[in-house]
Design a protein around this nucleic acid. Sequence first.
DNA 1: ACGCTAGAGGCACCCGGTGCCACCGGCAAG
DNA 2: CTTGCCGGTGGCACCGGGTGCCTCTAGCGT
Lengths: 211, 211
Amino acid sequence: MSASSAAEAPPGTSSAVPLRVGDGRGSTRARIERAALELFTAQGFEQVTIEEIAAVAGTSRRTFFRHVGSKADAVWGDFAAHVARLAALLDAAGDSVAVLPAVFGAYVEVNDYAEADLPVLRQRMRLILTEPALQAHSQLRYADVDEVVARYVAARCGQAPAALLPRLVATATRAAATTAFEVWLAEEEGSLAGALRTAFGQLADGFPDLR
Amino acid sequence: MSASSAAEAPPGTSSAVPLRVGDGRGSTRARIERAALELFTAQGFEQVTIEEIAAVAGTSRRTFFRHVGSKADAVWGDFAAHVARLAALLDAAGDSVAVLPAVFGAYVEVNDYAEADLPVLRQRMRLILTEPALQAHSQLRYADVDEVVARYVAARCGQAPAALLPRLVATATRAAATTAFEVWLAEEEGSLAGALRTAFGQLADGFPDLR
DNA sequence: ACGCTAGAGGCACCCGGTGCCACCGGCAAG
DNA sequence: CTTGCCGGTGGCACCGGGTGCCTCTAGCGT
């Protein structure tokens, strides 16, 4: 449920088709994303124009759009792969665990980043949670996540994916995950997994102190 | 947490300053919103240009923006008033009820629409939940709602509004409310309040069947 | 009659996003 | 070597949302 860190292709893997892999500083797409992230954090999302990003990335406006689709997408890396991984994790969970723990576990696992990736992750999430335009755009990305989770819950409960329970579990768990990201960002110390587990825990027992 | 139905000023109330109230078909703002809503549902959000809306509303592009701020805002009516009402309801609830029931109750009450307003509400919510651009924009509106709820929960629990618990309650209840709207929209029969209460109920007991 | 003010409209501009075409480099087939 | 294909690139023109600025006009009080 965070921005994906899989911007670059795995270094060891050479594609079947002999693509131009890069000019030493990574693929065009990766250069664009790096430039965008840097400029956005330095000057703010709205202040940066596509032309500037393209210039820093050493390419053209037109090529920018061919690679990242939209200005907001430049922040998200390969998020589709992220969602696919979540789906795979849920799939692998199967019926071995109860539904809610399965969803929680998949969220925690899909957001298990290597130490080295955390700074970039922070940078991305700070932008996404802070900049209004990106905050708005995030809803579209999260909708994909919600659909995956709802489908899983629906399958396990024998309900339609559009029924109340699956949709509710999907949106509520995702809200919890987003909130966990918020507090993880706000305080310097503390692990992301810990924040996620705390949020999920509170959600799962229905806020007993507040009833 | 729905779109506000308070597009028009209350008919009996004349402002302190003698504004031009309208030309018999309501204020300029109301005409713009009606035109926008009609065109959006008929042709889809993206397909309609501001120029078209302005033409149907009998005004100009420039005036459109003076009144509604943005294309997406044309769908939301006076949502700030809606949020203010929610805040007032929470304020009025005070410490008489437990925190969670108070939030639930405020949500239900703020979404207690007159029978006559339901068709427009459906139209608005269908657009907001269906059209990607509006779905994205909704996140910005909902952020205001979340802040109000988080502030209330924080005050009652003696925590900071940015702490995990208040933020979590705010986002989770709002997710539940949105989901309730979704299912209410999907099935023709059934009351909105009922859908809200069901969703809140499931949320409050932590999905016992799924643990 | 005077000026003031608020709402309105026109105009020019910026920027994100798209469609179209032209170019260039690599590569395989002849 | 030449030819033709092809994928990535870039330029260009266009559309549409949004804003700043200026002007006009209608209604107001003095």
